[in-house]
């Protein structure tokens, strides 16, 4: 009864591999399928065969035949071993002589001397080779303008550049400038104190420059500079004389 179990086993993987469209796998499975009756038959026959081979006379005959075969096998093996050893011995004895003879006939130095390396190198004209590579044509073929445009389009580099540049001017530069202004005023005051100045400095710029700077179209209303600027400007203009500074 257990034969049937054995027979069905080879069939199981057939279903799995069928889905994989593996031709070889399919072929093997088909082969198994075809052979399954034979295998089943073999399983069926096996106990009988075993029984026959275990039967006394049959066992004696097969044992004698096996012994004879074994003898021949051992003999063949020793013969093979002997032959290999002989071959090995032969090569070991003759090869050095052969090589010596060959090298006696060949002057390696002469061969090397005959190869004119300079001529070989001369024939490989690197300059000509490079000349053949037409870099200009290559560069021409690559339309860099178009490429850059496309790159910028793809990445929206324009927007990034605009944003970053405006951010840099507004944030970082403003910060640096204001820090500079503060440092200026600090140094001014420090020096004034060292020099025991009572009135500090007159730092108003020329009136025209001040009004030009503070009187922009968008600053009106918000910036109180215009009137104050002109006031300062007057002071500035009066105090512009170089002699003032010498004090």
């Amino acid at each position: 009864m257990d034969h049937t179990d054995d027979v069905t086993e080879p069939h199981e993987p057939q279903d799995e591999t069928a889905s994989e469209t593996n031709l070889l796998g399919d072929a093997v499975e088909v082969l198994f399928g075809l052979l399954s009756p034979a295998i089943a038959a073999g399983h069926g026959v096996a106990p009988t065969v075993r029984r026959i081979s275990n039967w006394g006379p049959v066992r004696g005959v097969s044992g004698a035949a096996g012994r004879t075969l074994e003898g021949w096998r051992i003999r063949g093996k020793t013969e093979q071993q002997r032959f290999l050893e002989a071959l090995d011995d032969f090569i070991r004895r003759t090869l050095p002589g052969v090589i010596d003879a060959v090298f006696d006939h060949i002057d390696v130095n002469d061969i090397i001397g005959r190869i004119d390396l300079n001529r070989v190198m001369g024939e490989v004209d690197l300059n000509a080779l490079m000349a053949k590579v037409d870099l200009d044509a290559m560069m021409e073929r690559i339309d860099f303008g178009k490429l850059t445009d496309r790159l910028i389009e793809e990445v929206d580099l324009r927007q990034i550049m605009r944003e970053s540049s405006s951010t840099i001017t507004s944030e970082a530069v403003d910060a640096v400038r204001v820090q500079g202004m503060n440092a200026d005023r600090f140094v001014d005051r420090l020096v004034d104190r060292i020099l025991f100045r009572k009135n500090g400095r007159d730092l108003a710029g020329p009136a025209t420059a001040v009004s030009e700077l503070t009187g922009g179209p968008t600053t009106n209303g918000q910036d109180p500079h215009p009137e104050e600027g002109s006031e300062d400007g007057d002071a500035g203009r009066i105090g512009v004389a170089a002699s003032d500074d010498q004090g």
């Binding site: 500079g180 440092a183 001014d188």
Partner: peptide, 20 residues
């Protein structure tokens, strides 16, 4: 940033000092 701008605005047209 706005504070900086206001500060900067207030000093426009004045004479710059040594550090700047």
């Amino acid at each position: 940033a706005e504070a900086r701008l206001v500060r900067g605005q207030s000093l426009q047209g004045q004479r710059a000092g040594f550090i700047s």
